[in-house]
Design a protein around this nucleic acid. Structure first.
Lengths: 133, 133
DNA sequence: CTATGTGCAAACTATTTGCCGTCTG
DNA sequence: CAGACGGCAAATAGTTTGCACATAG
């Protein structure tokens, strides 16, 4: 079963450069907005297709956060995230999580693969906004 | 600022009974399907409105799991969830997680509110299916 | 050359909302 | 009997897909 050959098109390269060049965690349409400055005729569908492809290849990360809109991350080193409950903005957290203990899973017959922690909080900007009231 | 008065309508009561009566973690439209057996004219919009209202009141829980479709849980006691990566089914896990250590959040200026843990794994049925190949 | 990729628009999925008549408290 | 609520259908948000043409390798 040969893998499908992938081509490094202009669109794919610029999408990749854009995501890698950001310290934020953009949604698909934020990426679309930025990429469109360099490739005005690119379509949102292409952005979605490439973000998913790059994620499958492990070159970028698709964040498994709660909420309707997916976000992407050019930083694939192991780290976690905190999300602002007011505005949805995400910040990076670097720490090591304990291994899942066998006691956690004593009552399930699921086979454990991995686990993820998501912190929720309020970002500095939204903290400021709240003080004004 | 007086709270809005809420009425216990037939629809709301039956939606609540349905969610509380399940050991599974139904999506809005699974609830809709079940409730419709007792109230054939109920609309999906009503189900959504009531699930959200009951969640705000803390009577049921809206699961903050990754993925496109939200799931609800009639069990509001503190516990975590594991989700099958193949079929999306959810199982309950009861254990105590260590409190977030200050070291986790040393590098962020977000104000921490809470955190959520989601385990990923493979459910028994999907394990069986995989062995057949 | 040819299969992979793109642009475009339409389709789709999950959820929300406006309107207006109904029913609870 | 007033205001909360429900049914219905249309609207919205985010994402996916079919198709015909373009292009990387």
């Amino acid at each position: 079963m040969a893998e499908k050959q992938h081509r490094m098109t202009r669109q794919r390269r610029i999408i990749l450069e854009t995501v890698k060049g950001l310290k934020t965690h953009p949604t698909a349409d934020e990426v679309f907005g930025l990429v469109r400055k360099r490739l005005p005729r690119i379509s949102l569908g292409t952005v979605y297709r490439n973000l998913d492809l790059l994620t499958e290849q492990g070159i970028i990360r698709k964040l498994d956060t709660a909420g309707q809109q997916k976000r992407f991350d050019g930083d694939i080193s192991p780290h976690y995230h905190i999300k602002c409950v007011k505005c949805g903005k995400i910040d990076d957290l670097y720490f090591e999580l304990p291994k899942p203990s066998s006691e956690w899973t004593a009552n399930t017959s699921f086979q454990i693969l991995e686990y993820n922690v998501e912190l929720l909080g309020i970002c500095p900007q939204c903290q400021k906004k709240m003080k004004q009231h």
